[in-house]
Design a protein around this nucleic acid. Sequence first.
DNA 1: CGCGGTTTTGAGTTACATCAACATGCGTGG
DNA 2: CCACGCATGTTGATGTAACTCAAAACCGCG
Lengths: 208, 208
Amino acid sequence: MYLQEQEAAPLVLKSGACLPPPGTGRVWRLESGALRINNPQALGQTGLLSLALPGDRIGLECLAGLAQTPLAYAITPAVLIAVEVADSEITDVMKQAYLSARQRCADMVMLRTGSVPNRVRYLLLLLADSQQLDQRDNALPSLRDMAQVVDASIETVSRVLGGLRQFDLLQGRRQQGGTVNATHLRQFTFLPGMTSSSALGRSRCAQA
Amino acid sequence: MYLQEQEAAPLVLKSGACLPPPGTGRVWRLESGALRINNPQALGQTGLLSLALPGDRIGLECLAGLAQTPLAYAITPAVLIAVEVADSEITDVMKQAYLSARQRCADMVMLRTGSVPNRVRYLLLLLADSQQLDQRDNALPSLRDMAQVVDASIETVSRVLGGLRQFDLLQGRRQQGGTVNATHLRQFTFLPGMTSSSALGRSRCAQA
DNA sequence: CGCGGTTTTGAGTTACATCAACATGCGTGG
DNA sequence: CCACGCATGTTGATGTAACTCAAAACCGCG
């Protein structure tokens, strides 16, 4: 109840794992990786509410007055640490949480704006930028997760990644691994016509 | 600086009007109507960040530590009142703001999930539900705004609304007016095939 | 080695965007 | 008052991005 940041052992989640105590009023801080925040009562849909990226607090809803914490799944290997929020800090923590919630909202809008290739591009940059240190740490979400995040089909996402690989903007994807060339990808824009599925066919023809 | 809720004269915005002092550190509460929150430095895109619905606070970013307030445009005739936030209340206000930011994020995701007809449907329900009292208050956003919110083209949105009108889920749209039949619309789902543009052609044929 | 989960690739179909008229208000000024 | 212009909404025809379905290649694992 004093300085809260260094607490309990870090919690390490594998891709696909759920944040363990769904009902508990525990507050976590995401250290690395990415989570998908899910609506518990997903009615047929995917129930995606938002993403969580390193630095975000998880489980603040209960502090803010809500009964239940939404479900959180790791879509990338993730590390979290439990934090204890002292009363004196609540205001500051809520301010931070508010700002990052706004940011995630903006991110979700971008992740669903424009063509699928551009949405995937935004997702990859988001993930790459959130990996603070080592660029070679190459963990990508599964195609299924990426597809749900950008609201596209798995096949289309696969084709987009294929296209990126052709331009060396992405290397070596096999089973949820891969290295994005963030700096090049950032200054890359999909021209209409070279986009997605059709792009593959055409550029392959062009190369042949 | 005591009880802050009843302050200054309400600010009435017409559809399309911008929240006046973009740089000022003023905090507003949206009483009725809907706003679109915009990224000031929109780089070619529409710059849509989020929506604001009645009850939401506008301009809290500065309180939370950000320099600038994002731009807010009314997409529906809107009424706001200026609020003064006392130091003692900041924590509670931020908690509320955090929760509603999460909710708006979830809304934005829904507004960008699935087929255009379903996205438009969600938008109409969102607007209808936010009009607390009189249902007959029939103010809809312009097609341009609706199209940008759900990330679709104006023409498609027009066709979707046309389809809804055929089922009496929407009445009398001429120049940003119209009444949504919220109760029926809520329990209505677009079957694949009767969706959007194609729906019009087909159902018109069926009727002829 | 065979078996489930993930990724890839292809071919056919469709929802939606685009382009291009056209209709309809609504305001402004002659 | 009507004439004009401008913003908004409507409608049709056409192209294409992306979805669907189906099959295969690839992994990791007991």
